[in-house]
Amino acid sequence: MSLNGAVPGASRQVSLALVAVISLVVAGGAIGATAAYFELRPSATHPGASAVTVTDDLGRTVTAPSNPSRVVALSPSIVDSLVRLGLRDRLVGVDCSSPAFGGLSADYDASQTAAWHLTSAMCVQVSPLNSEALVNLSPTLVLSSTIVSVSAVQEIANTLHIPVIMLQPVSVSGIVTDVQLLMSLFPTGSLGPTLVASMQRELGNVSVLDANLSYNDAQLPSLLLTYAVNPVGSTAPGYWTFGPGTFGQSLAELAGGSSISANVTIPWPELSGSQVLLAAPSLIVYGTGFGIDLTLYAQGPDWSSFTAVQSGHAYAIDSTLITEPGPTTVLVGLPDLIGLLHPSAHS
């Protein structure tokens, strides 16, 4: 290039930039190799423990130690199951929303949660997950629901080599299955079979109810099963309820109700006042607790215009009996709900 070739400065120095790039690449390679080296080191396994392989509610195949001694349960319903199975002594950690910490489920029956004996040292923050606190409990097994994100759970399983089983039943019968899953991990003596039997008894009652209803050719009452409300004046006023693919939906069906939210697309929908007006449920069952009561529901959109409210068919139920997918819901919540929907059948 004549324009440039003639100038004395044509031979140029290699720039600092290039040197920087090369050294960065070298450094990066070194760091990457180091990281890979540490990553590939054999991880500490649980010596001597026999292992059980189970498939959890998300379809994950998990190999867990048999009869694990240090368990973290990141959901009140799992704590419920473990305590009923006599496994309280295995419990070293729970999620911070569990009753003892004044969290979301503070309304669990006090006599019941008193038996859980939870201490603040057991509390693990789940959103966002405080991994340090979790690891600090040295768990050999983590039982979790989807209040913890699957990706976070997967991280624990992959990088810290702690097995995580996800218990997120999508139906009431799934609650029974989950208890049976726990029974495959722990020796429960007679407590396990007894618990399963009592839950199946309640489900059997439902079959009798169904038979009766179809024999009488009774119309199933249309139902709004709501567990929380955003009053008028809040950003999005409406009634929170269960959508398809949730155990709450299955709970409403088993109790002999025709849920007005059976056909929405979202698993955990919030219905507006006009949606409820349009569906005109003949019955409303509203969950109380967590600071939510009838006074608050009465401030919900169009509450007093609902047929069910006007006709006096709006009933309160303890929220923990319908929102936590644990044995308590099957043993107490389901019969209570049937009692509200079909008083005669229940008696």
Partner: peptide, 10 residues
């Protein structure tokens, strides 16, 4: 000045 070069005395 090329992309990987820097200013020189010229």
């Amino acid at each position: 000045i090329g992309g990987f070069e820097r200013e020189n005395a010229y």
